[in-house]
Nucleic acid binder design. Structure first.
Length: 256
DNA sequence: ATGGCTTCATAGTGAAGA
């Protein structure tokens, strides 16, 4: 199974990039974030014409998540149960015998801001939920835009970013607590190029200078460890005209 | 240089992203 995550930063603008990428890479599953699109506008028929089924939870202007898969996604959950949140950031589905949890974790804006407190509360609720989901779904993949750079090696300039949003200790602690539920960072299971990032700021020529952060992740549960054969960041879509500021992260399992 | 760039909602500019 080939599975990918991609924050597309508006599916309306990025649809040609996404369809081109689906045709070229032929993943079994693509989890997207920041569709910024209400459900009645979701281009499900475009993906259907490429052999993909879609399930989506969107809203106008901000947020919005979707799972695009060859197999029919079932048993969808579109909220963190018990966590009242109008923002569309969660899409958990079952594909075969694997539970896939697609996340658009809040950005947080600035440390100590209201949005930062919302991010930390959101993460607490997420961790509590996924902790209880573990027994139910031994084979789980959690992927998406985490808006957390877990380690200094995931940041182009760790000193400049020290303690800042995406890198603060409470955010990294939340990432660690998620891992400690029994998950692993697929990207770090393999030798990787130095300065591997998944997001680059549109400003300051961030991408050509590789001023990036690794904030998009694919985590997997213990039961899926033996079959994982690779994980990589695909920088190609970031080189296109009018790219998303994020680029896809891809993981491959030998079997479902 | 609390800027830069991009998207969206809007019809001027401003919010938000990361």
């Amino acid at each position: 199974m080939k599975i990918a995550t991609w924050n597309v930063n508006s599916l309306n603008v990025r649809l040609p990039h996404v369809t081109d990428w689906l045709v070229r890479e032929a993943p079994d599953v693509l989890a997207v974030q920041e569709t910024k699109m209400e459900d009645h506008k979701f281009p499900a028929e475009v993906f259907a014409s490429l052999g993909y089924q879609s399930i989506f939870s969107g809203q106008k202007t901000y947020n919005g998540v979707a799972v695009i898969a060859k197999e029919r996604p079932v048993d969808a959950v579109m909220d963190i149960p018990g966590f009242d949140d109008p923002q569309r950031r969660v899409m958990a589905v079952t594909l075969g015998d694997v539970r896939v949890v697609n996340l658009y974790i809040p950005n947080g804006s600035e440390v100590d801001s209201d949005k930062y407190r919302y991010k930390l509360a959101w993460l607490d609720a997420l961790i509590a939920w996924l902790g209880s989901e573990r027994q139910k779904y031994p084979q789980t993949i959690i992927l998406g835009d985490f808006n957390i750079a877990p380690e200094d090696i995931d940041v182009y300039d760790p000193l400049q970013w020290q303690g800042k949003i995406l890198c603060s200790d409470p955010e990294r602690d939340a990432f660690r607590r998620l891992i400690d539920l029994g998950f692993h960072d697929a990207f770090r299971q393999f030798e990787q190029p130095e300065k591997s990032f998944s997001w680059w700021d549109y400003r300051m020529n961030g991408f050509p200078r590789n001023l990036g952060l690794r904030i998009d992740h694919i985590l997997f549960s213990d039961a899926l460890r033996p079959q994982l054969t690779g994980c990589a960041i695909d920088r190609e879509p970031r080189k296109l005209e009018r790219p998303s500021d994020h680029t896809p992260v891809v993981a491959v399992w030998e079997r479902s």
